[in-house]
């Protein structure tokens, strides 16, 4: 039985002060984006191209078009933003800085409001990270900023035979006792200042990737930075420098470098619902 007032599980409902807070966050973010020359894009809720947008296609909310071709509700904004800008608007605009403020949907009835920015044709992660930091500053939030490089765990797996399962579960004991050496030093690495010394200890392919982390850390002035070079998460498109903001157990933002139709790009998404939860807790 469905009650008259019932809303589906994991659907979002904001009203009164919560809705105002959401609007204020979106307004603050859009002001920052406009100031730095970003233009807004609103993509269709229905999409033909969401298969690459999620890890498991069972997460897609699927419907059909008039020819019974499969369509999904937007599960991620980045892929459609890139496709529309490069394929559809490619001939009419050469604008490279775009932002969006729109929700994404996952099966069966999950909704997530997101605010995102995409910088096409350049892997300037420092620029998009700077935007995210400015938005957090306006919101008076100081979450932990974790900086990782997805290439490091990939190299460890492919060239140095560290099992993926060990990296996924951050198996401390295995990394420390079974692998040891410089990999153990990577496990203990925490602050950007330690990177220069560590670079002398690790192979050159790893030090190249570590230095990218350091460069990104040095590009921002922020106290709560944690370097996590072994962090592994199967990303849909972030495969290089990667950053994540979190406060207690809530993820507030994910971003980094990626390739979009063989074009370099950088971007991030802010998780509005989690930001609202943190701000409401005070």
């Amino acid at each position: 039985m469905i009650y008259e007032h019932e809303i589906p599980k994991d659907a979002r409902l904001y009203f009164g002060s919560g809705a105002k807070l959401k609007r204020d966050i979106e307004k603050s973010a859009s002001e920052v984006f406009y100031r730095y020359g970003y233009e807004e894009i609103v993509t269709p809720l229905f999409s033909y191209h969401q298969h690459g947008a999620v890890e498991d296609t069972r997460e897609l909310v699927r419907v059909s078009d008039e020819e019974n071709k499969e369509i999904a509700l937007r599960a991620d904004s980045t892929i459609d933003v890139i496709k529309i800008i490069t394929k559809r608007l490619g001939n009419t605009t050469d604008h490279k800085r775009w932002f969006y403020i729109q929700p994404v949907f996952r099966y069966p009835t999950k909704e997530f409001y997101q605010i995102g920015a995409e910088l096409l044709g350049s892997s300037k992660t420092d620029e998009v990270l700077g935007l995210a930091l400015e938005i957090f500053e306006i919101l008076s939030l100081k979450p932990v900023l974790q900086i990782s490089n997805i290439k490091i765990p990939k190299l460890l797996q492919e060239r140095y035979q560290v099992p993926l399962s060990v990296l996924k579960s951050v198996n401390v004991e295995y990394l420390s006792k079974e692998v040891g050496g410089w990999v153990e030093s990577l496990l203990y690495l925490k602050s950007p200042e330690q990177i220069t010394d560590l670079c002398e200890e690790v192979p050159s392919d790893i030090s190249d990737e570590l230095l990218k982390i350091k460069e990104l850390c040095d590009s921002v002035s922020y106290e709560k930075i944690v370097v996590a070079p072994l962090f592994y998460a199967k990303m849909r498109y972030y495969e290089d420098l990667f950053f994540r903001f979190f406060e207690s157990n809530l993820e507030l933002c994910l971003g980094g470098e990626y390739m979009a139709d063989s074009m370099e790009a950088a971007g991030f998404a802010l998780y509005t619902d989690n930001i609202i939860e943190i701000l409401q807790k005070g």
Partner: peptide, 21 residues
């Protein structure tokens, strides 16, 4: 360990790991 706790309290957790190990 919780993943966010591990990254934000890495020193404490790794120090505990060493002692317990």
């Amino acid at each position: 360990a919780n993943k966010n706790s591990f990254y934000s309290k890495k020193d404490e957790i790794l120090s505990l790991y060493e002692s317990l190990s």
